[in-house]
Amino acid sequence: MVKKVDEHSRNDAFCEKTSTSIWQETPSTTNPYTVSEARCHGYEHLALINNRSYTEVLFLMFQGELPTPEQHQLFEHLLTSLIHPGPRHNACRAAMNAAVSKTHVSHILPLSLNVLSGEQGGSHEVFQAMKYLQNNQQVTPRMGAQALTQAAKILVAQTDEGDIIPAPGFGTFYGSIDSYTQKIADNVFNHCSPGPHLRWAHAMLDGIDEVTLSWRIAGLAGACLLDLGFTPYTGELIFQIACAPGIAAQAAEKSNSPITEMPFLAEENYVIK
């Protein structure tokens, strides 16, 4: 029996032109498909090129206004902190493997950023960490620490494999504290002006003394991005942009290398079920 489908018009009225408040282009008088002037949120593009940094203009595009000196400093520190996920990160390994496999260069960064999009160590963990921090701003850091500790103990009792991540952005890293992310966090606190989300997360982690939990890079990135006024949606995008240079550089380094330059799983490690 064929199921009858209820078909009807939605009566949606589609717009006739694409609109954006981010970028304005004034057509040339001689050719309407070329540009005589471009503006980003009202700021003339050439003036931005000559007077502002890449970090400031990136902030402007997403936020609609140039950053304050304090915001600029924090954003600059964050972007530089995230510039390379590390050669052990799956996204970097994907880029290197693709490069030695002679994948077309135009495809390497897209496929690697797709690997970077995961929920553990990827951009979606940043999205989830930002949601977690937003949802817990009315909770005291001490209560947050207690809840995180209790959740971690439950996870430890349930499994003896993998990392313990009781909340997105916070937990273990390869089974222990992520010491390098802690150094980055300390550096941010020493050189920038932390906002409410950074201070809350820092105080929460200070309240944990029974379980080996710490910042994960997604938690630190998420806290910084919230303090800079980014939403979880835009924060996830910024994280991908920030990590792209290191991933691309790893691919470029391997571009002229033979396929044997990267490890290949031994036959005994393949399991057919």
Rank of each mutant, 00 (worst) to 15 (best):
K4R: 13
K4H: 10
V5L: 14
D6E: 13
E7Y: 14
S9C: 09
D12L: 15
A13E: 13
F14V: 14
P27C: 02
S28Y: 01
T29I: 09
N31L: 13
P32L: 11
S36G: 06
R39N: 13
G42F: 05
A47T: 14
I49R: 14
N50R: 15
E56S: 15
F62G: 06
F62D: 05
F62W: 08
Q63D: 02
P67F: 07
P67G: 04
P69C: 02
Q71N: 11
Q71I: 04
H72E: 09
L74D: 02
E76C: 06
E76G: 02
I83L: 08
I83K: 11
H84Q: 06
R88A: 12
H89S: 04
A94D: 09
M96G: 06
K102H: 15
S106T: 12
I108V: 14
P110F: 04
L111G: 06
L113Q: 12
N114H: 10
V115D: 06
L116P: 06
S123W: 06
V126Q: 03
F127A: 04
P141T: 00
P141G: 01
R142L: 10
M143W: 01
G144L: 12
L148P: 02
T149V: 04
A151N: 03
K153H: 07
I154Y: 10
I154T: 14
L155E: 07
T159D: 05
T159S: 15
E161W: 08
I165W: 01
I165F: 02
P166Q: 00
A167I: 01
A167W: 01
F173R: 14
F173S: 14
S176K: 15
D178G: 07
K183N: 13
I184F: 05
A185T: 09
A185Y: 08
D186F: 03
N190P: 01
P194T: 06
P196F: 07
H197L: 03
L198C: 15
R199F: 00
R199H: 11
A201Y: 09
A203R: 12
L205F: 03
G207S: 07
D209Q: 14
W215N: 09
I217M: 13
I217H: 08
C224A: 12
L225W: 02
G229F: 09
F230H: 13
T231R: 09
Q240W: 03
I247G: 01
I247C: 01
A248S: 10
A248C: 03
T260W: 09
T260E: 15
F264A: 14
E267K: 13
V271L: 11
